[in-house]
Amino acid sequence: MSEELSAWQLIASGDATLFAIVRLSLAVTLSAVAIAAVIGLPLGALLALARFPGRSAVVVVLNGFMGLPPVIVGLSVYLLLSRSGPLGEFGLLFTPAAMVIAQAVLVLPIIAALTRQTIEDLWHEYREELTAMDVGPLGQVATLLWDSRFSLFTALLAGFGRAAAEVGTVMIVGGNINGFTRTMTTTVALETSKGNLPLAVGLGLILIFLIILINAAAWGVRLWSEQRAG
């Protein structure tokens, strides 16, 4: 097909617009995952080890939030950041920062919930041995995080995959502004509706490639960790 052909030409020629979009998308998603990881990993670990009334409810809600519809997250962050919203004074709406925040909110439950599950499973296994060795609470958390680092890395990749592939949140809070907040997914959506198929298909191809790369990485990490740690 001619669209596909010209899509490949676009990629091969190193088209500036195309790669600016790819670069922005990656920067936004990586930042979002980094922020979500910094909050989500300790939060998940804490939730795995802490015992308090209402804990089960928190776990259920957190698991439910893994499937939060992106447009709902987008809408919530929009309301938060809009001029009249509680964070309106910072003027973040329709900037890449807004997109980072929205994607971080989207990915946080995924990372926290997967971390909680992973750490809790390992804790059930390790509890008696660690207690017998008189390992304190901080040491316990450190040991659990370290010994499940490969699974946790996979959780981060899952978060990255979800954020990289979604359209709804970034469309709403980013505004899809040409050259400023246009990401791969929003561009694909827009250019398709405009009938500019080569750019849409080119970005689609790159997106698919990235997703496959992530899954290959997750698979490789798993294989490697099984050899290393059993």
Partner: peptide, 25 residues
């Protein structure tokens, strides 16, 4: 020190398991 009926190995090498216990001690 305790040797459980079904001891649990840390997800590390044999040496690292012993080193861990030494560190805790």
């Amino acid at each position: 020190a305790i040797l459980f009926q079904k001891p649990v190995m840390l997800r590390r090498s044999a040496t690292a398991n012993v080193v861990y216990a030494l560190g805790q001690a």
